[in-house]
Computed example of a mutant assay.
Amino acid sequence: MAGKPKLYYFNGRGRMETIRWMLAGAGVEVCFYFMEILKSERGNLLFQQVPMVEIDGMKLVQTRAILNYIAGKHNLYGKDLKERALIDMYVEGTMDLNELLMHYPFHKPEEKEKQLAVIVEKATTRYFPVYEKALKDHGQDFLVGNKFSRADIQVLETILMAEELKSDILSKFPLLKAFKGRISNIPTIKKFLQPGSQRKPLLDEKTVAEIKKLFDIDQ
């Protein structure tokens, strides 16, 4: 029996968080190794970058490659090429929004109000309407093929991140709000959302400072 996947990253959200979500949605238990151990693993980083996931005898880097592998391995990637194309479109869109949300804590205090306005505007006019329309058009519980997929996982993750910054951001999207409730209650996802899980919290100022120092980001 294969061992648990090993995840190498700093102790925070960042690009590893979606990978955590994907593995949690698949019901996979993992081991975490934080940045300190990478001193001995640096030679295994293909592009000298994290996240890195050790799984099935491979040491994978590049977030999308890792997510694609996990989704394919755990039957979260649709039943055929057409469904995969739809999933990819939804996923790429939500990853664009996720990127804005992920970088929000790193903005200077005087920039945050403006950045939040950008996030809310794009979420409510560009991204969330797409998912709302998809749910309305096919009238099913999931975004693609009426089956739980990586699209559902990644859209839920992004919705919850957006709600941390603006709690009523779904007020104009009733179908998406109901979708959030359904996906949140899938047993593997529900477990991941409980206190004490391996889900990481919103970055606080102390953690942001530590990450900036770790990656030599300008203060």
Rank of each mutant, 00 (worst) to 15 (best):
P105F: 01
S40P: 00
V50P: 02
L46Q: 12
H107M: 05
L38V: 11
T94Q: 08
Q48E: 15
I66W: 06
K79T: 11
V91P: 02
E54H: 04
R64H: 12
E36L: 11
C31H: 15
F34A: 11
F106D: 06
Q48S: 15
E92V: 09
D96I: 11
Y90F: 15
F32G: 13
V53T: 10
L38Y: 03
H74M: 04
N75P: 06
D96S: 12
K108R: 02
H74P: 00
G93E: 15
L60Q: 06
L38S: 08
L86S: 10
V91I: 13
L100I: 09
Y69D: 09
E83C: 01
Y69K: 09
Y104C: 03
L81C: 01
M52E: 02
P105Q: 02
F106S: 04
I66V: 14
H103T: 12
S40R: 13
L101G: 09
M102F: 06
N98F: 12
E54Y: 00
H107T: 01
N98K: 06
S40K: 15
A71C: 08
Y90T: 07
L76M: 07
Q48I: 02
G72K: 00
C31D: 15
Y104N: 03
D88F: 02
N68K: 11
A71R: 00
N68P: 00
V50N: 01
V53D: 05
N44W: 01
L46V: 12
K59V: 04
T63W: 08
L60F: 08
Y77I: 01
K39L: 12
K39A: 12
A65T: 14
K82N: 09
M89P: 03
H103K: 14
I70W: 05
G78F: 04
E99T: 15
A65Y: 09
E36M: 11
P51K: 11
L81Q: 01
A71H: 03
G57Q: 07
M52T: 02
I66P: 05
M89Y: 10
F32A: 13
A65H: 08
R84S: 03
I87N: 02
C31W: 12
